[in-house]
Design a protein around this nucleic acid. Structure first.
Lengths: 202, 202
DNA sequence: CAGAACACTAAACGTTTGTTCAGCTCGTGT
DNA sequence: ACACGAGCTGAACAAACGTTTAGTGTTCTG
């Protein structure tokens, strides 16, 4: 258990920035606010990171490392993300929406791994075949990330703290149900969708 | 087909704000930028809306109306969202992440409608039973909203403009496949999840 | 022990921010 | 013809912004 004071000032600033950026957004966070949270002067932030944008990049790198080195074999992307610390999650959500280079790279990486994972599952027979493996992987990852990005909304409706484990588990279980047994009992929506597709592109 | 010039200045300001807020975020958008996009002076923005925050509220209200009055019977939430104009979509994504009151209300509303819709489908036999109807509805709506919020990432990987219809359709189809036939062919993940749940909460 | 290197700050820089204010230009009702 | 309110602007405001500068200690190093 580490307390705030036995971290180096540089790390304290990075942590404060991560939390602030995550909750208030990058544009909505001032260097002064980060400095105040870290208990240092605004000038020290510049001394260590050069500029606000470089501070943001440092956060990007930190989050990338946290997630990449979080899971051992990284077989399942779900676990990695859910296990990551809360400020990191919130920051990641912001970064994905703000379309940070690092976040884009991470998203692409997760999709790639997931696609391989799904392909392996397909070979081994526990994943169904797909007409568009890439699109499926992208959509699947989007779905995994959705409760993370929409955490506040989901949490409020499912009761309790959005970051609370119990709430996340409840949603995850509902999702897993849909993914194994399906949501719809027949093909009506799928065929309806195909019809629309044909009509639009004959 | 309406051109930018035959709208009232008030509407032009609102549209410009919607677009800017959507792409740059609310904190990242200045009143001056909005005014410049709308071809008016910053002072006129204040004249019409009073403050930046009231301008944001006006955007909230507009998006709410756009979506609420968009679908006729609103049987399926999916169509409404996908059919909404692109700036509105992007703004909605931002608002959901920034946790605007209006966005929260809208999310809750969509979930409520979806839950009723799924319950009706369950009665009619084309939706499978669920252990946790509320959690399923919340998760389902999150999944619908995911490509919207993560549009940039999804679009980049699926090729082409994120807002492009073809790209969105490709992801939507992959999602629909998973929802009707399921993704996993057996219960291994679901039972694994249940095991973890039991071990955590005995 | 001198001195370079480092961590750190107070104060100020110029810019941009949201907002205000006085005043301009109209079309409309009297 | 006159006044009036609505639409609209340029200039200015104080506050907050990211960043710079000059300088203070403190700690390694030769």
């Amino acid at each position: 258990m580490r307390s705030a004071s036995d971290l180096t000032a540089r790390a304290r600033i990075r942590d404060a920035a991560l939390a602030r950026f995550g909750t208030d957004g990058i544009a909505g966070t001032s260097v002064r606010a980060v400095a105040a949270d870290a208990g240092v002067s605004p000038a020290l932030v510049m001394h260590h990171f050069g500029s606000k944008d470089e501070l943001r990049q440092a956060c990007d790198d930190y989050v990338l490392d946290s997630i990449r080195n979080g899971g051992e074999a990284a077989t399942e992307a779900l676990g990695e993300i859910l296990r990551a610390a809360t400020p990191v999650r919130r920051y990641l959500a912001r970064a994905l929406l703000d379309d940070t280079p690092a976040a884009g790279a991470l998203f692409a990486e997760i999709v790639e791994r997931t696609e391989a994972w799904l392909a392996a599952g397909e070979d081994e027979g526990w994943v169904r075949a797909s007409a568009d493996a890439k699109a499926r992987a992208v959509t699947y990852v989007s779905w995994l990330l959705a409760p993370l990005v929409l955490g506040n909304q989901v949490g409020r409706l499912l009761g309790g703290d959005p970051a609370e484990t119990a709430t996340a588990v409840r949603g995850a279980r509902a999702g897993l149900e849909m993914l194994t047994h399906g949501l719809f009992a027949d093909d009506r929506w799928l065929t309806a969708f195909t019809d629309i597709e044909k009509r639009t592109r004959p």
